[in-house]
């Protein structure tokens, strides 16, 4: 799999580190334990398109939001965080 880094161009996946679901957002400080629980533990496991965090850890170290298809590994959108 190759990920087109907006700063470095298309690079091999070995240069990146996967973090997981980029659709979840850290709740506000006062949001309460339920909101933080969902943020930390609840994840969808879709067969299809996902939005994920990837860091170009062996490159420019930018954090990227990547739209990837879990069946084909097709990547249709990458943007810097």
């Amino acid at each position: 799999m190759r990920i087109p880094c907006p700063f470095c161009g298309p690079r091999d996946e070995v240069e990146f580190t996967w973090r997981g679901d980029a659709s979840v957002q850290r709740p506000a400080a006062e949001a309460g334990v339920e909101a933080f629980h969902d943020y930390v533990y609840l994840r969808r496991n879709p067969r299809g398109w996902t939005q994920e965090w990837w860091q170009h850890s062996a490159g420019c170290r930018a954090w990227l939001r990547v739209e990837r298809h879990t069946m084909t590994h097709e990547i249709r959108k990458v943007e810097a965080a």
């Binding site: 580190t17 973090r19 957002q25 850290r26 965090w53 860091q55 850890s57 170290r61 930018a62 954090w63 965080a81």
Partner: peptide
């Protein structure tokens, strides 16, 4: 370092 970078890019951007 990665933990700091991630939060700087997301929650604390």
């Amino acid at each position: 370092l990665q933990h700091m970078e991630f939060h700087l890019a997301s929650a604390f951007r």
